[in-house]
Design a protein around this nucleic acid. Structure first.
Lengths: 399, 399
DNA sequence: GGTGATCCTGCAAAGGTTTGCAGTGAAGTA
DNA sequence: TACTTCACTGCAAACCTTTGCAGGATCACC
């Protein structure tokens, strides 16, 4: 990767050397000495307070506080088998879809006293696998967010470390899904309602579960509404991917486009603009995700909002719940844990929500008076009013 | 935090229980048994290969590969004192300024075989402190990104765990700074060159180093160019913060605004638009950061590009270099390390770069013919042309 | 006073790895 | 042959915690 910025040699403003009081690692032993008890008592003060005399407890706690003692989680992990860490494997941190998810997951995890490793795979399935291996021993579980590797590999890896999968359905594993199928359907119906009869689906990465779901739902909805659906792609799920597809979209002769995600949608609008095609006057565009920027662009983007933060929270909850059920590799590692830990797996589908803004408008066959589908609902995310989200119907999908 | 999405009860599509081959933690001992050597030999095979007979080595490696052995980093950390983890403490992951930094830092760290904890503080200084403490024992060092806590507290914490600070200058500590002062100057000069004489600086968080630097540099540049600078703020560094300030900006009667960051700039443009004020025709707006979206909005944002990715990489490098110099808390923890580890600290200033796009235009006092300052340079980030960044001059600032 | 129960605390092993030290055998040197 | 050197390997302690077990003290009760 080349350096994108003029960087006239990092300027060393200062390069000093300084003494410093070297980190004094204070252990359970120091606390024990200070408070005149055995280390096991100190240990119990933290991990099983009810087993120690209240007086002793306060004394120990005081000493600990005093010395600034913090239990060494690595040492603890070594014996308990639980690290109190989780891993978050992300296809692309720079994709604005993920940060809210990461933020929510991290927050939820920390609430439960877990720390979070974050790793970026650059959309590379090989990196995903390698990362699961690398993290396995260091975490109690891993969140796989929009993985690009095969289902069978995921299943296999789940034998090494508990996994929760986001944005992908893997039978036998806990999954958090967003109902993009329903969202795509709502979007297509919205477009048909506006009078569009030739619609394109601007596809994303081939190995994406979301991509497949969208295609399926959009096809069905288009057929049901008597519209013609053109499939374009696969494309990179980025702004560049979207703008690169502009020419293709224009040539296809459609009057409306449902893009794989907001980034592509915004890029597409940009690209169309460069070609002199106006949105929404000549072409309507719908995105997916409702990233923060989609309400800052002009025109503001009509999009299928996905509950990213909720997904992050839910996934962490599922991971941690499953984690509390079956402690892994604990004391009697040789014997008891040998075979057949029974684990319950749930799959959760979260609702999506079509948010109608300014990037969609009447199509060439619009009937002047009453729009057919989804009445234009106010943007629920704008401070203007409380706003009632377009009620998403349909609550479950077939497995 | 309330649930922002209609979520008609997470639908459990599946809730099955399944047997599974419990994770079999394979240790150095298993490898030793399999390959008929002592565990210490296996250990050396991984941590000091040159000390073991090539034949033995291949045999051990084969067995390890076979059994799927991975060294347990926690156990290793316990004895070596190095975890091979680093911590990344971020003010707000959802702020699009940070993801590229995180991505770059993580990538750089992983290249060097380090894993990365990411934690979000929600712009809360207390959370920052608590996180440093919590992570201290689990990492070899921490990157503090745009910290909101006091310098003295940072210095104090740095005695607990090696710290590298991004976007803040702390004497005696390694820092990675972006020359926003220079950027602000360039922005102001650009605006003055366009004929603006009444300019506002839309400030960000009070405790932000960047904020102070910008104010200082902008003031100086405005004075030098004979323009009047109005200081507005502090504001939340978000889109909402920006749009909320629109009214204030209009009342202030300025014809140009330099915002604390792109998010605020975009929000401001949005807010001004709502008030019927057109950008750049009536008011010019400049942002800072050059987040990915600033070239997708309309008008495309003129902004001071900050080398976020480079900052992430550099910071990790500095942390890891310092880390290799002084192993902490190793074997003889009682004796040798007792006092006065000498550590060299460098502070690096990275260049920023004014990118002129469409949100700035001629001011009320524009001289028709030749613009005074910075000739309009093509956007270096658009695929259109190779583009030469506005050469940023000035290579160092006073400490 | 004896018995048992209850509460608290100490002992020591265990978890997976690294590493200083010592031991082995072979090769090199005198 | 005797001695040194060298390359390799094994032994065991150490890192910091947790936790089953057992011992000691206190108390209630018969």
């Amino acid at each position: 990767m080349e350096q994108p910025f003029a960087l006239i040699g990092p300027t060393h403003v200062t390069a000093a050397t300084s003494d410093e009081g070297a980190a004094v690692p204070v252990t359970i032993r120091d606390v024990a000495r200070a408070s005149g008890v055995h280390i096991s008592t100190v240990s119990r003060t933290f991990s099983a307070p009810h087993l120690v005399n209240p007086e002793t407890r306060v004394r120990v706690l005081a000493c600990a506080e005093d010395l600034g003692y913090r239990p060494n989680r690595a040492a603890r992990a070594l014996i308990t088998g639980r690290t109190h860490n989780i891993g978050l494997i992300i296809a692309d941190i720079a994709n604005p879809f993920f940060p809210p998810l990461i933020k929510a997951a991290e927050s939820q995890a920390r609430h439960r006293d877990y720390h979070v490793f974050v790793a970026d795979t650059n959309e590379d399935p090989t990196a995903e696998e390698e990362l699961v291996h690398a993290l396995a021993k260091q975490v109690d579980g891993v969140l796989l967010c929009s993985p690009r590797m095969s289902n069978s590999l995921i299943e296999q890896l789940s034998r090494e470390v508990p996994l929760v999968v986001v944005n992908r359905q893997v039978t036998g594993l806990p999954c958090v899904l967003m109902d993009v199928g329903q969202g795509a359907r709502a979007a297509i119906e919205h477009l048909i309602g506006l009078g569009h009869t030739r619609i394109a689906l601007l596809g994303g990465p081939r190995s994406s579960w979301t991509n497949r779901e969208m295609r399926r739902a959009a096809s069905t909805a288009a057929r049901a509404g008597g519209a013609e659906l053109t499939l374009l792609g696969p494309n990179a799920p980025t702004g560049t991917g979207g703008s690169a597809a502009a020419e293709q979209v224009r040539r296809s002769g459609v009057s409306a486009v449902l893009a794989y995600n907001d980034l592509m949608a915004i890029g597409l609008i940009e690209g169309l603009d460069a070609l002199g095609v106006r949105v929404p006057q000549e072409v309507s565009v719908v995105g997916v995700d409702d990233i923060a920027l989609s309400r800052l662009t002009r025109p503001k983007l009509t999009t299928v909002a996905t509950p990213t933060a909720a997904a992050g929270r839910t996934a962490v909850d599922m991971l941690l719940q499953q984690d509390t059920e079956s402690p892994r590799g604990a004391r009697g590692s040789g014997a008891g844990a040998a075979l057949g830990v029974r684990r319950t797996t749930a799959q959760v589908m979260l609702q999506t929500d079509l948010v109608i803004r300014d990037s969609t408008g009447p199509g060439p066959h619009a009937r002047p008076a009453r729009p057919l589908a989804a009445p234009r609902s106010p943007d629920p995310h704008c401070p203007a009013g409380p706003g009632i989200p377009t009620a998403a119907t349909g609550d479950a999908v077939a497995s």
